[in-house]
Amino acid sequence: MPGGGPEMDDYMETLKDEEDALWENVECNRHMLSRYINPAKLTPYLRQCKVIDEQDEDEVLNAPMLPSKINRAGRLLDILHTKGQRGYVVFLESLEFYYPELYKLVTGKEPTRRFSTIVVEEGHEGLTHFLMNEVIKLQQQMKAKDLQRCELLARLRQLEDEKKQMTLTRVELLTFQERYYKMKEERDSYNDELVKVKDDNYNLAMRYAQLSEEKNMAVMRSRDLQLEIDQLKHRLNKMEEECKLERNQSLKLKNDIENRPKKEQVLELERENEMLKTKNQELQSIIQAGKRSLPDSDKAILDILEHDRKEALEDRQELVNRIYNLQEEARQAEELRDKYLEEKEDLELKCSTLGKDCEMYKHRMNTVMLQLEEVERERDQAFHSRDEAQTQYSQCLIEKDKYRKQIRELEEKNDEMRIEMVRREACIVNLESKLRRLSKDSNNLDQSLPRNLPVTIISQDFGDASPRTNGQEADDSSTSEESPEDSKYFLPYHPPQRRMNLKGIQLQRAKS
């Protein structure tokens, strides 16, 4: 015994090295194993092979420090690593049964499904019991997946119906949107047309105001020219009257000059006056001389005659003075006559000038009245044309509004008919989907599995289990394997941990 101590140590070291070499393959693929292994699927088989106990299973599945599946799978690998070579062998058998691809990844061999460990530990009855539990578990999982698949199909059909409904609603909204954009385009076109009409109206108003201003300026210029013409006519008439007055005065002077006595007659009258003065002096001298030589009687007679002569001279002087006064009065009367005649001529000139001015103003008033009548006639014609244009424009607008209203009513009726057609199509689609759903539900009910399987069917299934373990590994792997896509769409199922009653199965096998 003492001599065998070193050999035992060498043997233990060799086993430990082999164990480390075995687990080295697992550690190399630890990331892939932790990512894809579900500990809840492996722990029943590991407990059946007595590699882990209930406490280890509870620690792996329910520990609060292991929230994710990767953490739980890593903890399970750590626990199996502590179990040595047996933990490695049982772990590979569980991978061979549940995850053939991972088994091939770790060992590089094809899975054979021999279950040597569980046969050694529990015997064939334990293997049968384990396989029966796994089959029931798989059936329950398949039923749950079928239910989930039916629910998802129903949800899918519902979503398809909602999608069709949303599509129809979208078509309806597109119809309304198209109608909205069309009405918006019509409104924009009408606004552009309105702005264009306003611009045209403004341009016409500006043109009309400009023409009116030009016409008023032309009328004012015409009036100024007419006033200048009238003033020139007035000056012409005044000059004609002055010329006529000057002509009359010149004719009067000419007549006075023609009626003036001649120079010879004046000289002859002056000679006669001198001769008479000479004779008068001679007679006076004779009379003076006679007075001195005459007697007293003759002197008395001469005195009487002288007195008579003096009286006659006085009378004559009075007559001469009277004649002079009369001549002066006649001259003054002639001057007054000439003055009055001049005033008369001036008044006649003024009267004729005023008459011509009156005629001029009368003509001017007639011209202004004619212009006013023409302006009123043009204004009435413009008003009439404007009223006709406004009436025609309003009539066109009324007809346009009428046609637009008819078009809008027809478009609304068309839209309502399209919407009604879309709604009826939606109703038809809904009815078809309901009919299809009812038909599929009836087919699913016919094809669904019963909840409680008979014992004979279970025994028959387990009677055929042994050949399947040898020759149909691919079928078992397809039913027991969970793909990543299934984990996305289906909830994980945790079967209840219970042991099955095998009395009925044993009785059935005894009868057979």
Rank of each mutant, 00 (worst) to 15 (best):
G4V: 13
G5V: 13
P6I: 14
E7D: 13
D9H: 11
D9M: 13
D10R: 13
Y11W: 13
M12E: 10
L15V: 11
K16Y: 13
D17I: 11
E18M: 10
E18W: 11
E18A: 12
E18Q: 10
A21T: 10
L22M: 10
L22C: 10
W23C: 09
E24K: 09
N25L: 06
N25M: 08
N25K: 14
E27W: 00
E27T: 02
N29L: 01
N29I: 01
R30N: 04
R30D: 01
H31L: 10
R35Y: 05
R35C: 04
R35F: 04
R35A: 04
Y36F: 09
Y36Q: 10
Y36S: 10
I37Q: 01
N38A: 07
N38R: 04
P39C: 09
A40I: 03
T43F: 03
T43P: 03
P44Y: 00
L46Q: 02
R47V: 01
C49R: 08
K50P: 03
K50I: 05
I52V: 05
I52K: 02
D53F: 05
E54T: 06
L61C: 00
L61H: 02
L61K: 04
L61I: 05
N62F: 14
N62M: 05
N62R: 03
A63T: 05
A63Q: 02
A63L: 01
M65D: 00
L66D: 00
L66M: 05
P67C: 07
K69Q: 02
N71M: 10
R72D: 00
R72E: 00
R72T: 00
R75Y: 02
L76A: 04
L76K: 02
L77T: 02
L77W: 03
D78V: 02
I79S: 03
L80W: 03
H81V: 07
K83E: 03
G84I: 03
Q85N: 14
Q85S: 08
Q85F: 07
R86M: 14
G87Q: 05
Y88G: 08
Y88A: 06
V90T: 09
E93A: 14
S94L: 08
S94F: 02
L95A: 02
L95P: 06
F97N: 07
P100S: 07
E101F: 07
V106C: 15
G108M: 05
E110V: 03
E110R: 10
E110S: 10
R113Q: 15
R114P: 14
V119D: 14
V119C: 07
E121D: 15
G123F: 15
H124Q: 12
H124G: 15
E125V: 11
E125L: 14
L127A: 09
H129E: 07
H129M: 11
H129F: 11
F130I: 15
L131Q: 05
M132N: 10
N133A: 06
E134R: 12
V135H: 12
K137T: 14
K137D: 04
Q139A: 09
Q140A: 12
Q140K: 14
Q141H: 11
M142W: 12
M142Y: 09
M142R: 09
K143L: 09
K143T: 11
K143P: 07
K145D: 09
D146Y: 09
D146I: 09
